[in-house]
Amino acid sequence: MRAVCPGSFDPFTSGHADVVRRAREIFDEVVVLVAVNSGKQPGAGEEERAAAVRAVLPVEWTSVTVVAWGGLTADYCRLHDVDVIVRGVRNTTDLQAEGRLAAMNQSLGVPTVFLPAQPELAAVSSTVVRARRSGGASR
């Protein structure tokens, strides 16, 4: 069974890596789909972000590929015979937002599986990582 883990990954965090690690334990193949999100203004293009993800994934994770994609995740899944979308959720706010996306993707024929964040990673977000890099967060 093939799964896709979509996200803007700006940047790819330890929380993202943990979701991919756990997804690869469940599914035969995992595609990390570096996507365009019209609601976000990433610091780099999707190809550059995809290269950054590839650079941090362990080389022994041969069942994991990284792809940049500018369309709908469900379209990618249908075009590439991907069975399921995997999303990590950190809290109830994430679950509500992801639930709406999952309903839309289900209506397009692609189910979603949620993986809850490990407790020690629940506070990790790309926003926090970016703020720390720029010196804007004290946390």
Results as ranks from 00 to 15, higher is better:
residue 114 F to E: 01
residue 36 V to C: 13
residue 4 V to G: 06
residue 124 V to A: 11
residue 9 F to C: 01
residue 15 G to V: 01
residue 116 P to M: 04
residue 89 V to K: 00
residue 30 V to W: 03
residue 9 F to A: 07
residue 122 A to Y: 08
residue 53 V to Y: 05
residue 79 L to Q: 13
residue 80 H to G: 07
residue 120 E to M: 10
residue 87 R to M: 00
residue 36 V to G: 11
residue 104 M to G: 01
residue 132 R to G: 14
residue 38 S to I: 12
residue 22 R to K: 01
residue 94 D to L: 11
residue 94 D to M: 03
residue 44 A to E: 15
residue 41 Q to L: 09
residue 122 A to N: 03
residue 66 V to D: 10
residue 11 P to F: 10
residue 88 G to R: 00
residue 113 V to I: 00
residue 35 A to R: 14
residue 34 V to R: 10
residue 39 G to Q: 09
residue 136 G to Y: 14
residue 10 D to W: 08
residue 84 V to H: 01
residue 105 N to L: 02
residue 130 R to V: 09
residue 60 E to A: 06
residue 7 G to L: 10
residue 46 E to N: 12
residue 96 Q to V: 13
residue 24 R to C: 04
residue 76 Y to L: 04
residue 114 F to C: 00
residue 15 G to Y: 06
residue 57 L to C: 01
residue 130 R to A: 09
residue 77 C to M: 07
residue 49 R to T: 09
residue 121 L to V: 05
residue 55 A to V: 04
residue 112 T to H: 04
residue 136 G to F: 13
residue 124 V to P: 08
residue 81 D to R: 08
residue 113 V to C: 02
residue 129 V to D: 12
residue 128 V to F: 10
residue 54 R to M: 12
residue 20 V to G: 05
residue 81 D to F: 10
residue 45 G to K: 06
residue 12 F to Y: 05
residue 114 F to P: 00
residue 54 R to N: 06
residue 113 V to Y: 01
residue 75 D to T: 15
residue 6 P to N: 10
residue 31 V to M: 08
residue 30 V to P: 07
residue 72 L to T: 12
residue 131 A to F: 15
residue 107 S to H: 11
residue 36 V to F: 15
residue 34 V to S: 08
residue 18 D to P: 04
residue 16 H to C: 04
residue 28 D to P: 04
residue 10 D to N: 12
residue 66 V to Q: 06
residue 119 P to M: 05
residue 95 L to D: 01
residue 93 T to D: 15
residue 63 S to D: 07
residue 72 L to F: 15
residue 46 E to V: 14
residue 61 W to K: 01
residue 54 R to D: 11
residue 27 F to P: 02
residue 121 L to M: 05
residue 5 C to S: 05
residue 120 E to W: 05
residue 56 V to E: 12
residue 38 S to M: 07
residue 16 H to W: 06
residue 30 V to E: 05
